[in-house]
Simulated assay, not measured.
Amino acid sequence: MKSIYFSLVFLCLLVKPSYSQNANPARFVKAADMTIIGKMIQTRNIYQSLDTIDYPRLPAAVKRLLTMSAGIAVSFKTDSRFLKAKWCNSKSKVGSNMTAIAQKGLDLYVKLNGKWQFCGVGKPLEQCTETSLVNNLMEGQKEFLLYLPLYDEINDLEIGISSHSTITAGTIPFKSRILIYGSSILHGASASRSGLAYPAILSRQTGLNFINMGLSGSAKMEKEVADLIAKIDADAYILDCVPNSSPEQIKSRTDYLVQTIRNSHPKAPIIIMQSLIRESGYVDAVIGDRVRLQNEEIKSQFLNLQKKGVKDLYFISAENFLGNDHEGTVDGTHPNDLGFYRFTEDIRPKLLKILAKYNIK
């Protein structure tokens, strides 16, 4: 009996106490009470990009996509040693080319030594999830960004901290407002998590506020969408909508889109981007021809607008968006994380050079 007793005592001594949520249970606060960033327009439902009821003429697909939380993040400061989250999604299924974390989960960044760094994720478990984001954080107050799901609606988001900790609304960490209108690639397909969509990467790298107006499969330059974009106040406008628009749509709709923005925002730079070269187009001649015609037509429209005297108009071509080794996509169309890294590395210096002309830096 003595040997068993001393063995148990020895084992207990080996088990060191650790900081845990169980010893210090979480209290939850509403994320809505923190600072919400990345929105195009203020909305009644703060986790949606747009109150679509206010825009009845928008195409149905555009309305549906604008209820999603792509590009939206929560900024907060806390000294908690752990972070949890509770949230609810819609009943939609995870897409075949997306991770569940990117589509329905959360992506947490922390500011360390003046730079934003990945910190943890919220893995969606059910339609409503309560889960840990990160444990055993270093002591002291830190600044966080919690990116919301790319391809789903979100409701009732709460952040969990230790019971004795404090939490306050963070600052808006990015300057100015650069609206990007575009396709599923802008929307975030197929980043592994929401903080790796390219507007989010650009914001963290540059300190500028790149706002994600991604409309997966539905960025087709419709008149109603052009009118909406013109109502959104921004310091610059980037048009990355060529991947969804047919050559015919590009020919018939580009002029109205650009002129409408220009009429409402006479001095803001407008930057037109070609479609990235789809990897599947190198082996599928039909896809390859379509992308070539799309890019030729948008270049032609850009030149026509210049001839008409539209000022502060710029063009970025697609030659090196994804590199040259053909490894930058998930499915031949949508960038993987490597593809998004290369994409931002290519366009960032070009964008910054243009924006600096307008003292946007």
Rank of each mutant, 00 (worst) to 15 (best):
K2Y: 13
Y5M: 11
L8W: 10
L8G: 08
L14H: 05
S18Y: 11
Y19L: 13
S20K: 05
Q21K: 05
N22C: 03
A26Y: 08
K30Y: 06
T35Y: 05
T35H: 11
I36Y: 02
G38R: 00
Q48S: 15
L50V: 13
L58Y: 03
L66F: 10
M68L: 07
S69Q: 03
A70C: 01
A73H: 02
S75P: 08
T78G: 08
S80L: 02
S80Y: 08
F82E: 10
F82S: 14
F82Q: 09
F82P: 00
L83W: 01
C88T: 12
S90K: 07
K91P: 10
M98P: 00
A102W: 04
L106Q: 11
V110N: 10
K115A: 10
C119P: 00
K123I: 15
P124Q: 01
Q127D: 12
T129I: 03
E130Y: 01
E130R: 06
S132I: 14
N135H: 12
N136E: 11
G140I: 02
G140C: 06
K142L: 01
F144S: 04
I159N: 08
S162Q: 15
S162L: 10
S162H: 12
T171H: 10
I172T: 15
P173N: 11
R177E: 04
L179R: 11
Y181T: 14
G182V: 13
S184A: 13
I185E: 03
I185H: 03
L186M: 05
A189Y: 01
S190W: 03
S190L: 01
A197V: 08
L208H: 11
F210W: 09
M213V: 00
G214T: 00
A219Q: 04
E222V: 03
A226C: 09
D235C: 02
V242N: 01
N244A: 11
P247S: 01
Q249V: 09
K251Q: 13
D255M: 10
K267C: 00
I270K: 02
I271A: 03
I272L: 14
I272D: 00
L276F: 07
L276W: 06
L276G: 15
I277R: 12
I277A: 02
E279Y: 01
S280C: 11
G281V: 00
G281N: 05
D284K: 11
A285V: 06
R290D: 14
R292H: 13
E296F: 05
I298S: 02
L305C: 09
L305M: 12
Q306G: 09
K307E: 14
K307A: 12
K308S: 10
G309R: 13
V310K: 09
D312M: 04
I316S: 02
A318M: 01
A318I: 00
E319H: 14
N320Y: 15
L322F: 15
H326G: 01
H326A: 08
E327T: 14
T329E: 05
D331M: 03
H334R: 06
D337H: 10
L338E: 07
L338I: 12
R342C: 05
R342I: 03
T344G: 04
E345D: 13
R348D: 00
P349V: 07
L351E: 05
L355W: 14
K357V: 07
N359Y: 08
